[in-house]
Write a protein that binds this DNA or RNA. Structure first.
Lengths: 158, 158
DNA sequence: ACCAATTCGGACCGGATTGGTACGCAATAG
DNA sequence: CTATTGCGTACCAATCCGGTCCGAATTGGT
């Protein structure tokens, strides 16, 4: 199974590209060319990110997109959430109301915990870190998972 | 965005139900009734798990399903993988060949690391733990994920 | 001050994947 | 032998994803 949608994946690529040139103002077409993505798709992604406040857009000639904050202040989780919506493992993590099993399903509280762990993993890495070489723990400690805990937690979110 | 597919979610519910009664031999119909799932769907899930070797099936009258191992020896990751296939964040994590961006895309190594983290989170919890109360650290340190953000679990859109 | 080029913004549509179902076959216990 | 149960295949429906189109806003030139 693939966790991230293609669009979310592309969105991170676009955001990373913007982070690599934080000073320049780039048009949607230029970004599409640089990332080898279809123009319309890149435009759609940028639109979503602008809506979420991650990038600022200026119209008219000499317009274009630019990151709204410093690359180090934008996490992967935010980019993904801007495109695909909030992150949740299961249906009931996102729409609690839709799950009529709430009362007797014993798995729900556990999902919430795993949920936070996954979210933390995506929140812990910023666009700035995405540009350079591996900047955070290479997860060597995860090869043997060892229950009980603190799964990702060797990486305090800054 | 929802990470687990509905079927994978259901699969965990079914597996958890089996783990709650490890001695009993349960028919697909009985499991479906207990979990309030459609019979055909439950059967499909059980078949997939049997194929992956997580449950054993015996046919004929008085047949049914049973966990192949002790509940503590089956991880959530295995159940999910049995139904949805291997876990990967992005397309290129699963089919490396399909990504022609391999050479210049700077984000790929990072994905692999996050990938391991997610996999570890799902591998770290077993069916046995899924039955009882929260058995591992609820990741309380991440409840405030950083900066403005508040990415998860609040639920604004729509 | 107007016009026009350029750029973003929202609505729409086709297609693929997923979720769910139905039917016929194989195996086993009574 | 027969009834019950799982096994496999094939099929249908629906949601969601990915992509394209056309309209709205803004700046720069004239």
């Amino acid at each position: 199974m693939i966790i991230l949608s293609k669009l979310a994946d592309y969105g991170v690529i676009v955001a990373t590209h913007l982070a690599a040139h934080p000073d320049r103002q780039a048009t949607a077409a230029a970004i599409a060319a640089s990332t080898r993505l279809p123009r319309a798709t890149a435009a759609k992604l940028l639109k979503a990110m602008a809506h979420a406040g991650l990038v600022t857009a200026t119209r008219g000639p000499a317009g274009g997109y630019r990151l709204a904050r410093r690359p180090a202040a934008i996490s992967i989780a935010e980019v993904v959430a801007a495109i695909d919506g909030d992150i949740g493992l299961t249906q009931c993590s996102v729409h609690e109301a839709d799950c009529e099993r709430t009362t007797y399903c014993p798995t729900r509280p556990h999902w919430a915990a795993i949920n936070r762990a996954v979210g933390a993993a995506l929140s812990a890495i910023s666009l700035a870190e995405m540009i350079g070489p591996l900047a955070f723990a290479p997860a060597a400690s995860f090869t043997e998972p060892a229950r009980d805990a603190r799964i990702f937690m060797d990486e305090p979110p800054r």
